[in-house]
């Protein structure tokens, strides 16, 4: 069973069609990089799957639970709130701007959801958080506040925060776009380690070298549609698609 299956997803903002008939699948252990120019619909796709935007049509199925589907009369409907919440628990999300809770220490940022949402005992949540922070190389920052950390450290905390709910799949929305190149490296290293440990991930990114190196599947989007998808070797090295070539050549020049 696929962790995530999206079929014919569409979404418009007013008269602007942002997503047109998007279909793709995420299998367990896959690391998918979603690439494409700004405004191609990558982030909207990710936000629709994470219920931060309402899709207009199509179906989304997460771990066997239908989040969005057509009902008998052909209307696209969302599942009830209980199921939607269940689905959110299966999906972790890492934001471009981290969105850490500034009034909580790093440790509390990570333990908040396990304690409040999973009703995990405090000591268990804390040892889990410390373990995750250790993996992120941040064990000594547990009692710091987010403002005391660099952007790269903040982003690693937000990865730990998402992982604390033990999601089936982790989404990244341009996780390094707000970081300078040096800090970007720290975050990419952590994501690579997660990939090596078979974490299922979908990464919206502008880091082509990273996408090529870490992803085992690449989706290229433009104008709200998936132009091309396949292995990194195929998309980056061997594409016959003119649009993909054009997009990648600009990156290769840069």
């Amino acid at each position: 069973m696929a962790v995530l299956e999206v079929r014919n997803l569409s979404k418009s903002f007013g008269s602007l069609e942002v997503l047109k008939d998007i279909s793709f699948k995420v299998e367990k252990g896959q690391v998918i990089a979603v690439i494409g120019p700004s405004g191609s619909g990558k982030s909207t796709l990710l936000r629709c799957i994470n219920q931060l935007e309402k899709a207009d049509g199509g179906s989304v199925c997460v771990c066997g639970m239908d989040m969005l589907q057509k009902n008998k009369s052909g209307k696209t409907v969302y599942a009830d709130n209980k199921i939607l919440r269940e689905i959110r628990l299966k999906i972790g999300l890492v934001f471009q701007n981290f969105n850490l809770f500034p009034h909580m220490t790093v440790l509390k940022n990570v333990t908040e959801a396990p304690i409040r949402v999973l009703k995990m005992p405090k000591d268990k949540a804390e040892s889990l958080a410390l373990e995750l922070l250790g993996k992120m190389g941040l064990e000594d920052k547990a009692n710091s506040y987010p403002y005391e950390l660099s952007g790269g450290q903040q982003q690693r905390v937000s990865i730990a925060r998402a992982l604390a709910l033990n999601p089936e799949v982790l989404f990244f929305d341009e996780p390094t776009s707000a970081l300078d190149p040096e800090l970007t490296g720290q975050v990419l290293k952590v994501i690579k380690e997660l990939a090596d440990n078979n974490m299922t991930m979908v990464i919206v990114t502008h880091e082509m070298a990273f996408a090529r190196d870490v992803a085992n599947y690449v989706v290229f989007m433009d104008g709200g549609v998936i132009i091309e998808e396949g292995s990194p070797e195929q998309v980056f090295g061997n594409t016959s698609n003119e649009r993909t070539k054009q997009f990648l050549s600009r990156y290769n020049q840069g």
């Binding site: 219920q51 919440r85 959110r88 628990l89 999906i91 999300l93 934001f95 969105n99 959801a113 998402a162």
Partner: peptide
């Protein structure tokens, strides 16, 4: 910022929480 609501939402926190 809206991101605070979105972060809490994606962590499955309830509206009250």
């Amino acid at each position: 910022p809206k991101g605070q609501y979105e972060a809490a939402f994606s962590l499955s926190m309830t509206k009250t929480q």
